[in-house]
């Protein structure tokens, strides 16, 4: 039986503001399977980004269980978390967070440099990825001289550079117009499918829901079944992980 890429049980997280602890995640349980493209939706402030940060080992939950790629990441110290992130997780940030001083190619090389790849190998892999994303001719362009859609693709290439098993994307289409948004998400999904990556996308953008294998809705810190709308009717909605993942034994 295959181990889920993400498995959480009873995740609880609250933020301290002064004296008060504001609960943000209340008892979140979910599981995601290898190769799945999962969308995480919900109203603003519902805790989507907080959950994504915990899944990405950038933030720790207050309590609950969490296993990523079979590792119990709850007890990792910050150094181990960083190692886990650079080896196993690719991020596409909402504001992309490309390095403005660098070219497209150099941006994609960074995760490989963090993994101590030899320069030539890093360059050739990064070129290959940029080619795959249709940016073959723009590798030496400074990222500030690229269009939003092109920058988005550089961000995807950077997330894929270290060949991580899990890709986490926060509002990847937020800064794009409709057509480039659709194109970006289509590319992300196609690429991840063909490379066998697992993807979790946080989004508000109902136009792209149809790209999801499954949509989970977070409301007030809890997983809730989504309201079925016409645009979503084609998508399978549930809060519980699909049955085959449950431990048979």
């Amino acid at each position: 039986m295959e181990v889920p890429v993400i498995e959480t049980r009873g995740l609880i997280k609250s933020y301290r503001t002064g004296e008060h602890a504001v609960p943000v995640l209340r008892n979140v349980s979910m599981s995601v399977h290898r190769g799945e493209c999962l969308f995480l939706v919900g109203p603003s402030g519902s805790g989507k980004t907080t959950l994504l940060s915990i899944l990405g080992c950038v933030l720790s939950a207050d309590s609950g269980e969490i296993r990523i790629l079979g590792h119990d990441v709850k007890h990792l110290n910050p150094d181990e978390q960083a190692k886990f992130r650079r080896e196993k997780i690719g991020f596409v940030f909402q504001r992309l967070n490309l390095f403005d001083a660098l070219t497209a190619l150099e941006n994609v090389c960074i995760p490989l440099q963090l993994l101590r790849w030899k320069k030539a190998a890093a360059v050739s892999r990064s070129k290959q990825l940029l080619d795959l994303l249709g940016l073959g001719g723009l590798t030496d362009r400074n990222v500030t001289q690229l269009s939003m859609g092109q920058r988005q693709r550089v961000a995807v290439a950077r997330a894929l550079a270290a060949d991580p098993e899990l890709i986490l994307a926060d509002e990847p289409t937020a800064s794009l117009d409709e057509s480039s948004g659709l194109q970006a998400i289509a590319t992300l999904k196609d690429l991840c499918r063909s490379l066998g990556k697992t993807v979790v996308v946080v989004t508000h953008d109902s136009r792209i829901f149809s790209f999801a294998d499954r949509v989970l809705t977070l409301n007030n810190g809890q997983m809730k079944p989504s309201v079925h709308t016409d645009s979503l009717s084609a998508v399978r909605m549930d809060t519980n992980p699909p049955e085959p993942a449950k431990k048979a034994a």
Partner: peptide, 16 residues
């Protein structure tokens, strides 16, 4: 700061 935060988010060590 944003660049350094990004570096750390994608797994840079303190030594990096």
């Amino acid at each position: 700061l944003k660049d350094y935060a990004t570096l750390k988010a994608i797994g840079a060590r303190d030594s990096d």
